[in-house]
Design a protein around this nucleic acid. Sequence first.
DNA 1: GTTTAATAGGGTTAAAATAGTCCTATTTAA
DNA 2: TTAAATAGGACTATTTTAACCCTATTAAAC
Lengths: 137, 137
Amino acid sequence: MLQVSRKFEYGLHAVTYLATKGLGRVVTVKEMADEIGFSQEFLSKAMQSLKRAGIAASVQGVKGGYTLGKAIDEVTVADIALAIEGKPHLVRCGVKADRCEIFSSCHHRGYMNTLQHKIQALLAATTIHSLLKEIEG
Amino acid sequence: MLQVSRKFEYGLHAVTYLATKGLGRVVTVKEMADEIGFSQEFLSKAMQSLKRAGIAASVQGVKGGYTLGKAIDEVTVADIALAIEGKPHLVRCGVKADRCEIFSSCHHRGYMNTLQHKIQALLAATTIHSLLKEIEG
DNA sequence: GTTTAATAGGGTTAAAATAGTCCTATTTAA
DNA sequence: TTAAATAGGACTATTTTAACCCTATTAAAC
């Protein structure tokens, strides 16, 4: 259905939230979940993915939490999608050839691949910095 | 995960298959399923959707089947996606506001909407005619 | 007229993906 | 030592997608 996952939406909100708080400020998952308005446990998973990708940095222990791991003009929406949803596959055969019954005779692969790259380029064209500017007006 | 549905893939293959056969030729679902290589029953559903949208035309009864309903330069990949998957909703709140817990406080809606429109524009930029040229080289 | 091969489509089941929860371990400030 | 946080594995529930089954309708051929 060409829809992003909720986990991605959560992650994007979290990153923009962290960004408005500034690079230094350590924010707990609880605070973000309360402030933005969704499930703490699930947001926590998104944060772990963002951390592994270096987009967020974490501080463990009491007084711990998350901060941004990179400058806001060095992270794009595509990076966040990659961190949370993994490599994009517009069509099944991208995941694994044997996912498609007609892999060998398929004529659309070239087109679908370029289409996917173009969509990726759209996501990569927005940095958190530019997204914030759009939000704040 | 930003992936198109299999039904859409089926439909796109069917449309390009019909296109190579020419506007006049009536083709059965069985022939297409055999030739392209997938489930007749499921492809049948895709064809019904394409027919409702006017992209395919049908002939009932013995010797019946499907033909293209429009000229190949008047149908875009976006039209096929719309016919088969319905109106696109990149994010849940597009489907229905109450699908999102934070609808009223959400800051990303504007961006996600423009992103969606850009993706639609990508799909709308390819007609069956241009897709065939790409395939046939 | 009857048979046959096709589309039309409702309804149900099966499988896969997504979302969400639970539990335990680890870390570190107080 | 306690408490508040991240880390992450394992499990469950929900939703979506894919597939299947069955019956009706249509129209050519006989």
